[in-house]
Amino acid sequence: MDVLGIIFSALFANNFILAQFKGICPFLGVSQKPGSALGMGLAVTAVMVITCAVTYPIYTFVLVPLGIKYLYIIVFILVIASLVQMLEMILKKFTPGLYSSLGIYLPLVTTNCAILGVAQLVTAEVAATSAHFAKTLVVFGKAVKISMAMSFGEAVLSGLFYGLGFTLAIILLAGLRQKVDRLNVAKPMRGFPMTMITACFMAMAFYIFSLIG
């Protein structure tokens, strides 16, 4: 699969938040300040890369050969939860500085659709059931089909760029909210409704990327 295609689709055309609606809870909850948005985004990116790197071999070399694919939900969520716990402990022990800025977001990452979603995307058969989320894109003159069977390298790469796409979207929203939250709007519209409408305009802008080609 084309590397550029994966990067473009993960960052823009199939952006996790604005095109696939995964990870909306932290998107709305942790976007008051650009600083905390960046922390959340980086935590999600780190966990996504590790998740892809770990769930891909588990799925391909354990669950499929043993014929227990149907257990993937339980296995994946347990693996992710313990991974996040481990990452938190390692950060606390070796890099206390990074832990104090990133650590508080890590427990939130466990119960996040984005992480389980990316674990599913990189496993081929699961992705086939959600075929309508997969889009065939023509990027730079080449047809790229997203969420086909991937190799290990592609899985990790797409995990990294889905995470960066998440970071991009959450920082953009945090920047916009710096202005939007200060606007004098009608009282019932304050808070979540205004954030949703801001996100609506962002989704419109990102929709253009899926038309490129």
Partner: peptide, 15 residues
């Protein structure tokens, strides 16, 4: 569309 989902949901919360 995706944008419509955000708009409708936001307006529903407000109403």
């Amino acid at each position: 569309s995706n944008a419509g989902a955000f708009l409708t949901y936001g307006l529903f919360i407000a109403i």
